[in-house]
Nucleic acid binder design. Structure first.
Lengths: 166, 166
DNA sequence: TATTGTTATACTCTATAACTATA
DNA sequence: TATAGTTATAGAGTATAACAATA
């Protein structure tokens, strides 16, 4: 970025550019794989995967959204799509009548199983094949730190609600 | 991802999750900053930044697109937006009459200058503040490798055209 | 014939605000 | 009053295919 790079060191710039490049290319490839293999968008895959890992495959809408979707209406939209396809069910929470609980169905787990091998293969081929075990460890450590920092810095200029929406 | 994680080591999974988390949160924050500070989308910022670094601030459409936009019509759309705002100009190439050359205007450079300090500040605060100099060097090295690998693996199942769209 | 770019079109996704209902 | 979620609506962005023009 030429002169505008003042404020970042050369190494920082290099790391940032590499990060954005990897992020963009990897995301694009992965999205294509998920679409081709299971007709899932990346967001839908993330939501299903999250539910698949949750106890009983169930999560409240609010907890499901975290980090994946940045507006509540966006989550409602995606949850509707998944429900229409029979990959999740939605129902009221027994504990808190305001809440909606989303649950993965068997079909939802099948969709994950269908998509997952290709997903892993893509990651291995596109990302990990170029890295040593030590690289991967370093990457996990460093990005883990960065993730912690980002989590601790919620988007500023907060809006109406604190948790989900923006 | 529970049992479905077979095929990736625990460390690989950890690295991948951290990567997606950082990518998502950072992108979201940066997009907000660019929008607030200069009414630019992330894609528009990338296009302007690329032009700002190019000799004479000029690039052919095809060269401008690389890695930023994945369809030719998408680039045309964004270039139109930038041209309407006076941030770039478009004109025919003298060498190849088929080509369109895009050039940053002074207003375009001003827009970059307006947005850049906040952009750098966000990166410093959200990403680099948590990392040591050695971390940043490692990150640049590792992600540089990964980027090379990704560049060498163009999106498979190629389509109509080879370079940009597909 | 292949390449560069534009246009028309349809579609996906996201965000804002207004609204309902429960705590 | 605050929280959880939905709905209506509008807007931004992307992709595909058909197209025109030049190499």
């Amino acid at each position: 970025m030429g002169e505008r790079s003042r404020g970042l060191t050369a190494t920082e710039l290099e790391a940032y550019f590499a990060f954005t490049e990897v992020s963009s290319l990897l995301r694009h490839s992965v999205e294509k794989q998920l679409r081709d293999a299971g007709d899932l968008s990346y967001v839908q895959f993330q939501l299903l995967a999250r539910l698949g890992d949750a106890p009983d495959g169930r999560l409240r809408m609010t907890d499901l959204a975290d980090g994946v979707v940045y507006s509540r209406s966006g989550l409602t939209y995606q949850a509707q799509l998944l429900e229409q396809r029979g990959l999740v069910t939605r129902g009221p929470s027994p504990e808190d009548e305001r809440s909606t609980v989303v649950t993965v169905t068997e079909a939802g787990r099948d969709a994950l199983d269908t998509v997952f091998p290709g997903h892993v293969a893509a990651l291995r081929e596109l990302l990990f094949s170029a890295l040593t075990d030590a690289d991967v460890e370093e990457l996990a450590r460093i990005l883990g730190r960065a993730a912690g920092q980002l989590r601790a810095n919620p988007p500023r200029s907060a809006a109406p609600r604190r948790r989900k929406g923006q």
